[in-house]
Amino acid sequence: MRNLPFLVLALLAAAAVFGAAKFVGNSYVFFAGYVVLQYVVLATAWNILGGYVGYVNFGTAAFLALGAYSSVAIHKLFPMPIPALILIGGLVSGVIGLLMGYLTLRLRGAFFSIATLALAVVVQTFIINWSFVGGSRGAYIVRPRTTAFFGIDYIEYLFLIMLALAVIAVFSARCIEHSRLGYGFAAIRDDEAAAEASGVPTLRLKLLATTLSGAFMGMAGAPLPYYVTYLDPASGFSLTYAVNAIAMPLIGGTGSWIGPVIGAVLLGTLQQIATVTISSALNLLIVGLVLVGFVIAAPNGLLGLLRGERR
């Protein structure tokens, strides 16, 4: 119950964001805002494993794509509303996260990260060769103009869904951070052997982290086919997702739930502005430059900078 005030505040903030986007009255705001919110979810999900537990996952794109391709497969078999697709996408990516955990969590540091990268390659190869979901050709999804439930523009609907998902992801991350689980995660990140010696069941907690992190990434990916309307492996497994999901928490600060939110909003907005004013091709360059700047000037992210910390 002590998290209830935060939930109320988060819902109020979400309502204010939606109201502000409505007030602008330009559907592109919803279009661009969706991407920023998607990154809030992705960065928060990455931070559960990477920031809280200290295991750097390079395979974000694979989990996101699993969610997205789950939606494509379900759409072709028996179309369902997007909230149901989000749950299925989360389940699929969560299970893959759990399996990845079992296979890789005895690895540490760079070895674990390389294994996650390998997972992305394996999943991408599998999707490329699965013609039911479009294979290398890609898959088209024709989205309706409006929704049956709300009668609002479909992009606004997708924006609203991603906004709700962002609230759920951030709320969950904050709850974890201030719970027994959060303390266990922090202990693992700081010293795994000492954590075990203190009674922390490190393997079980790491599996929980990979499952939760993977599930949220899959949830973020589930509405993607309806947003892009054409999904192919090159876009679904784009390097941009993996790089942004790492860069955003690092820029915001990895130790707390607010860091990935700050990083995603700042970097995501900057990328959207660059996309419409210069070129979308500059997105990764922007991430790279900002990241280099932060590594030099604020290695603990903006949160660290505000607290006056230096690594």
């Binding site: 027994r180 303390y183 266990g184 922090a186 700081d190 010293d191 000492a194 203190s198 009674g199 922390v200």
Partner: peptide, 18 residues
Amino acid sequence: RPFASLTVAENVRIPLLY
């Protein structure tokens, strides 16, 4: 081998919790 990101009190809190 302290938990470097946690305070002294929080270091002791971990085994109590687990």
